[in-house]
Amino acid sequence: MRRLRTALAAASGALALLAAVSGCGLKSGSPMVDDVVPGSVGRGLPLKGASLTVTSKNFSENIVLGQMVGLVFKAAGAEVLDRTNLPGSISAREAIVKGDADAMYEYTGTAWITYQGNAKPITNPQAQWAAVRGADLKNGVTWLSQSTLNNTYSLGISQANNAKYHLRTLSDVAALSKKDPSAVTLCVENEFASREDGLPGMQKAYGMAIPASHIQKMDAGIIYTQVSKSSSCLLGEVFTTDGRIKAMNLATLQDDKHFFPNYNAAPELHSRTYEKYPAIAGLLDPLSARLTTQVARDLNAKVDVEGRDPHDVALDWLVSQGFVKKG
């Protein structure tokens, strides 16, 4: 599980990086040199004269979102330093907290569970965002409005197999596991298989009866391939915004009992940056309002399936939506 791995990485390989972030400032980065001008956002150049740093974690979706923030800032008149693609969640988070970076897109579930130490998610997405925002103010972090982009967990199934089983929800999987235990085979990552907030908790919450012999553990990329082949994995652990869902024509099942946290993407800012440049909300709120889970799947596929550069994907989307224009 990507989020679980990044949390664990914070306690091991990221320690040296964290020391550099908190003690000496970030060491990498390059200026954004794009010739972009305002479209529907950034008119009047409200960030003219500002020098801002954007950051992100090191997976495709978050890099694309970080590039969007930087390009919007650039179009609004700011000089922008690009420090996206930091390893793990904690390094990017610390950059925002310490003021070594000014803005990034973060996920509400990651903040609520990993950073703020809560054991149980809040079912209502808006209530979870509000709780995260309130708790982070004391950390010097300000959250702007969230998107409906929800990069949470689900189970995926091939369309060919689903033509036979007609599964729509995780409750449907539980019913099938009881009616025909031999039919349900499940492929998951190692951590998801052992964590209480992963497979064991999901099975308990839904009353699933999947024999241990029908659960296979493998790397995430292999899961998508095996599920799409409709062979050894009837179902597989997936991320709801993964571009391979569309590319491999998979269906995802609804978490109808809201077991998994909501991982809605929203901009988080170093609070002093927001105090100095409150116009940032007017720049990023329209962007977040347009970001959906399906949009994320499409953009992620351009990077992970088509092999395009995240910066180019971000720029093309912003231009296509009219947020910025190329100069």
Rank of each mutant, 00 (worst) to 15 (best):
G39E: 10
S40H: 06
G44I: 09
L45E: 12
P46K: 07
L47F: 03
L47C: 03
K48L: 15
G49K: 10
A50L: 04
A50F: 03
A50C: 10
L52D: 06
T53E: 00
T55M: 04
S56L: 05
S60M: 00
S60W: 01
I63F: 01
I63V: 11
V64E: 00
G66Y: 02
G66A: 03
L71F: 02
F73L: 12
K74F: 00
K74R: 13
A75T: 14
A75R: 10
A78Y: 03
E79P: 00
V80S: 02
V80R: 05
T84K: 11
P87F: 14
G88E: 15
I90E: 10
S91M: 04
S91V: 10
R93V: 09
R93L: 13
E94C: 12
A95Q: 02
V97M: 13
D102K: 03
Y107L: 04
G109W: 01
G109P: 08
I113C: 08
T114V: 15
Y115N: 09
Q116R: 03
A119T: 15
P121V: 12
P125Q: 09
A127H: 14
W129R: 06
A130H: 12
V132S: 06
R133Y: 03
D136L: 15
D136I: 12
D136G: 09
D136F: 12
L137D: 12
K138W: 09
T142D: 13
W143R: 14
W143Y: 14
W143M: 11
W143C: 14
L144S: 11
L144C: 06
Q146Y: 01
S147Y: 05
L149W: 08
L149C: 06
L149I: 01
S154W: 01
G156L: 06
I157R: 08
Q159K: 14
A160I: 14
N162H: 04
A163E: 14
K164R: 15
Y165P: 11
